[in-house]
Design a protein around this nucleic acid. Structure first.
Lengths: 344, 344
DNA sequence: AGGTTATCTGCAATCGTTATCAGTAACGAG
DNA sequence: CTCGTTACTGATAACGATTGCAGATAACCT
């Protein structure tokens, strides 16, 4: 089929392949016009494979994420896309939360891409040496591995976000505050749990084990965790849910059980959602700019690539902020007293 | 750096490169053990570029979508990912609804990928010849171009879905039914408008021009369109919104204006959303399986690839279904009479 | 042991491009 | 008329892997 090579073009014009190659790379050559025509007429497209082999570059940057249907990661990808520029493209790898797929993908990537932007599944990846011997520039986004300091990263201030969220609940008078957390083996899972605990400690509230549930950042996980909390002898009056998908799950659970938010229980989530103000009640969340994280990660990657890998790792931190909407209220006990303040 | 080639391995073991190559391709060779060790010791990874050049295959399939942050397209990508198999990967191209980026991406793709799964921006792409001369297998998903019949495709029964949605509103007694549609230059935009009109016609309702707004499948577009509808002299009592993002926008508009759903206006959307039952009120929608569309598209692509391009194009159609929740009710006029039926 | 297969091996060509290097034509200056 | 300069050109060797071919080795049989 369309297997027309530079040689065919050269023959057609009556010059050597070198001339065509030079024309393609922007040098001035004698028969520019003829070459241009020949290329169009023969429908010649330079072989990317051959170019890769010669140059050692592919012009492709991989993005490895656990779950592309999570709007947060979709936004990261979109942000990265927006910063990728003219002459590079993005190879998406969706590991589907499977360690096995992640490993395989990573080994497949070598030679196909110039660099990897990734949100690793867990912090304890295949030994500290793995990424070092990987031989490709790496930028971590949202999550890092144990030896993450050696590579550039773009993170969120997870602990701060969780601290703010918990503090907010405390300031409303809550004392029985639960958290539905992510896996403690992940960066955000661990840091958000830290922030939650430190906020409780600062206010002199003892953190009860049964109020912290380690879940898995999935909707189903959030659903199950909320069910467990509701079955406690003394259910919490407020819950901090550590990511968007689990928040959706938790809300589903509450709806199915007929528990009203925020009258009976207050909910604050991590990561904003397109529809957060449309749900009933509008969701109060800790928000951050996922697109920005993606574009920053891409910027760092490109910087590494252009500087020939001699750049020291940089660590960037994206800020978080509290978006107050309607899913948090005074705890039930105080509502009796100050019931005029329930729904303003 | 990690620029160890097959030649280095061969030298290290003391055999020819051909032997190493054969070992890698699964033939039985004499010094298997030694070769295995050498590969590990030297940390040798075969160069994908060289392989591509020799074989003409890349093992990469491109997916071109207009907007990866749209959950629908994210699900398509996820579905495709799940069907891609062991020895192929996905190259994601997010065109960001820009025709220019789409064109450029497509031309960049040649030689980098073995095939392209795409949801084209509009039906009238760069002339019918473009894709034919593209020289790569193409599978259309969700949308096609003018000459789409020549290539395999996985579509939804858009007209049927729109028909069902409109019929549903009619059956509830609505007569002033508006539609917020997508661009008529796109497959789903056009077909859904067709379905809406045919349903109206079947029931003898004349379709008023001011009740059909051609928007752009974006949240902002949905917002603006809903605002325009509300400013009509005789605003509609029900609106069919032709995709998920515009539905979110429309709901935002209604919330901002203080118009209550479904008491004052009924809303039915196209495409389900994770949180559709969490919004207030739970959203009634026309749903379909986006993951399935993605995986079917990938299956078709792989079939083409394995059959050496000699396969005739296949056209698959994914079914739609009505998911009744709470965002549609009897029109206001009838509510006075049968008010007991408003909220069951 | 000698002959015949059955396996395995190395050489070298090849994939499509680009970089290098030597070479040619045109032109003006001396 | 020769020389140097400028501005291009063509042949050729890489890049790293795969593969057909012919030769080498081992295995088997009589």
């Amino acid at each position: 089929m369309s297997t027309v090579t530079i040689t065919d073009v050269a023959k057609h014009v009556g010059v050597s392949v070198a001339t065509i190659s030079r024309y393609l790379s922007g040098f001035t050559v004698r028969n520019e016009e003829k070459i241009r025509e020949a290329i169009i007429e023969l429908n010649y497209r330079p072989s990317a494979a051959a170019r890769n082999l010669k140059s050692g570059r592919t012009g492709i940057i991989a993005i490895v994420v656990p779950d592309i249907t999570n709007p947060f990661f979709a936004s990261i990808v979109e942000g990265a896309e927006s910063a990728v520029g003219e002459d590079r493209m993005i190879l998406l790898v969706n590991t589907g939360d499977s360690r096995e797929r992640e490993e395989k993908a990573l080994s497949q990537l070598f030679g196909r891409v110039d660099g990897v932007i990734m949100a690793p599944l867990t912090e304890d990846e295949q030994g500290p040496s793995f990424f070092s011997q990987f031989g490709l520039p790496i930028v971590f986004v949202d999550r890092v591995t144990k030896d993450g300091e050696k590579f550039s990263s773009v993170l969120t201030d997870n602990a701060k976000g969780a601290h703010i969220a918990t503090d907010y609940l405390i300031s409303q008078g809550h004392r029985k505050i639960a958290m539905i957390g992510g896996p403690l083996s992940t960066t955000p899972g661990k840091r958000r749990a830290d922030g939650y605990r430190s906020a409780l400690a600062k206010s002199g509230i003892s953190s009860q084990v049964e109020y912290f549930i380690e879940s898995d950042f999935s909707e189903a996980g959030g659903y199950a965790a909320m069910c467990r909390l509701l079955e406690e002898e003394a259910p919490p009056t407020a819950v901090f849910v550590a990511n968007n998908l689990m928040t959706i799950g938790a809300l589903h659970a509450l709806r199915d059980r007929g528990v009203s938010v925020p009258q009976e229980i207050s909910i604050i989530g991590f990561d904003d959602l397109e529809f957060a103000e449309l749900v009933n009640p509008p969701l109060t969340v800790i928000a951050r700019d996922a697109r920005l994280q993606g574009s920053q990660a891409m910027d760092l990657m490109i910087k590494h690539l252009e500087n020939g890998g001699a750049t020291p790792p940089e660590h960037s931190m994206v800020d978080v902020q509290l978006v107050e909407r309607g899913s948090c209220a005074l705890p039930r006990e105080s509502q009796k007293i100050r019931s005029n303040k329930i729904d303003h």
